[in-house]
Design a protein around this nucleic acid. Structure first.
Lengths: 232, 232
DNA sequence: CAGTGGTCTAGACCACAGC
DNA sequence: CTGTGGTCTAGACCACTGC
């Protein structure tokens, strides 16, 4: 059971970094030296180094060498789907409103459009087992000829609402996560009588030219959502 | 201004996927065909394909071919540092308690230890401009000879509390994020009089053998924390 | 069996760092 | 100038797939 040479190189150097035999900022052996050390070709050495670089252990500077990266310890990969999370799944949605509005300053700024442009607003409720568990607001810049079919919107997730001429997969998305006490209207819609916290997730969608194409605010009843992340 | 061939291959195929000319599950041209198409060597083609694979656009099955990956649209890279976030920085900490306790069921389960083992509990408050903004609980399995120096613990971030014999960088970390209404004790420590939500971040640390080495619960006053994520 | 991707060799030329 | 990493070639052998 012998692993490929490039993997051995990868594992060896990775372990040296994890054991602090190689410290952040330190230079590692040049490729030619690793070729001699492992008695292999440069392509094989480079494949091992590419792995280390991909996983954030090292970086290279042309003409100078390869150096140990200072570790990124605070980055987590988080899964977020407004319809599904660690402890709950939305099984029903209700459309409260579809409208065309003129944006206020904050919204115009978020969508990077002028205040004279029209914006489509979509308000929905998400349900699980007949209970309202989230209040959802979406804003889309109004594009001429954009089809607004209420039935479609009712169950669509955010990226599906974006006009079809923007390639779906090219979308960049940002999220912002925070906690909040529900305001009057939201409290009523979510049938909250006692004190209850909300987990709010704001979502901003960008096209491939980094222009905002959607802004959403989804407010979850706190006992129906947990987000999970794993370190990178 | 001509880019390397492997980058052209990468961009071309990436665009074909984003424009749905290539659909998820579809097979892409075999490496030898791409060699002819781009009039280049197999190593160069493979470098382009490796990039596509790293970024999650394709996957390969030995003996069969390369296929377009069904897109992962719901994964975000989130930065979380208990002392620093998008809207606030902790400038002071206060140690409330350092103790050795016997874990309850839930804690013993979280740390994957028997209920007869000892656990160190550390309770702290985080401050910004003299105001308490977060209540912090850490649990560490008790290891013989583990130094507990209160002054050190007072300002240490979680990974720094883990005994020195575990290589720092080998730590895997999980986080769970949710919202909550503060309970009596937390409410008092954070000097919360009105209705206020908490954003709670649970953190679990593992060593390189995937054994839990720490469990933490940090409860932030909602107006002092926002977490940000970008799509992958 | 032929076709595919996975690994590897032994060279080559280039641009850039630093002396 | 030498040494470095970045790109690339033209082969090779292997294990696996599907016919």
């Amino acid at each position: 059971m012998t692993s490929p040479v490039y993997l051995q190189i990868f594992e060896n150097i990775k372990n040296q970094i994890n054991n602090s035999e190689l410290k952040p900022g330190e230079r590692i052996l040049p490729e030619t030296a690793l070729c001699k050390l492992y008695e292999t070709s440069r392509a094989t050495v480079r494949k091992g180094l590419a792995l280390l670089s991909n996983e954030g252990y090292i970086y290279s500077i042309p003409g100078k060498g390869c150096f140990v990266q200072t570790p990124q310890q605070n980055r987590y990969l988080v899964y977020y789907d407004e319809m599904n999370n660690l402890i709950n799944t939305v099984d029903q949605t209700r459309l409260l409103e579809v409208n065309v509005i003129v944006p206020d300053d904050h919204l115009a700024n978020s969508l990077q459009i002028s205040r004279s442009k029209n914006v489509i607003v979509i308000r929905r409720l998400f349900f699980t087992d007949g209970e309202p568990i989230a209040y959802d607001l979406k804003y889309l810049p109004y594009v001429k000829g954009m089809p607004i079919v209420e039935k479609e919107i009712e169950t669509a997730t955010f990226p599906e609402m974006i006009p079809k001429n923007i390639p779906l997969l090219a979308l960049k998305k940002n999220i912002v996560i925070y906690a909040q006490i529900p305001s009057g209207e939201v409290k009523e819609h979510l049938r909250i009588r006692d004190n209850r916290a909300l987990l709010v997730v704001e979502q901003k969608l960008f096209d491939s030219d980094n222009r905002p194409v959607g802004f959403g605010i989804t407010s979850f009843k706190s006992d129906y959502i947990k987000l999970e992340g794993v370190s990178q």
